[in-house]
Amino acid sequence: MKPYIYILSHEMKFSTNGKSLLLSTCFFIIIILTTSISVSQFGVETSATSVAILWVALALSALLSVKVMFQIDFDDGTLDWLMLSPISLETIIVLKAITHWLTTCLPMMVLTPLVCIPLGITFDSALWILLVMLIGTPAISFISTIGAALTLGERGSHLLLSIFILPTFLPILLFGIKISMLVTNSIYDSSAFLILLAISLVCIAITPFITSMIIKVHYT
């Protein structure tokens, strides 16, 4: 257990030092503020779209810090060492995804009840949305590792990464947004919750293997 904790703490220290934590959270706040200001000026009923804005803002800001997930380790050779170590590559990917979730998705989720105020979502439904996010966002972090691995070694391919990865968030986004919309209208559909949980768990289960396949391609 000890080496896993060590790698995790190293990753955590590394990503909080890199200021990506602050940046993606700021980006999240700014997307939400700009969109809600733009929408509010025309007296549009926001509560239906605001949930979608919340989720899309979350997905976009999560993408922002994906690039650094493997790139720096790949450049300075840490990844070579990690691949040679007795710990399997899949485990390392899981740890990286957990780090990404802790440093990127969690701060945004903490802010969610706060940013729900300008979006016109009540506090009670904000707590429910938080629960939906808790189910959905780990999958977002795990799927992001695929994109980070695909664009490994490419300079300035942030755009390329978004082109691949944003469409793969769709299943999570569709269910997350729909359930959040139902929740804001006080409809609690437990089967939808379970399906979102299922999709999320399937993504978490398969992505480490896919990502490790992709990373191994870079080393052949």
């Binding site: 469409p167 793969t168 769709l170 299943p171 569709l174 999709i199 896919i210």
Partner: peptide
């Protein structure tokens, strides 16, 4: 690999 991943997620999105 991207093609395979894409088809998995396209199918998932379609059923979603």
């Amino acid at each position: 690999l991207l093609c395979i991943i894409g088809s998995i997620f396209a199918l998932l999105s379609r059923y979603a």
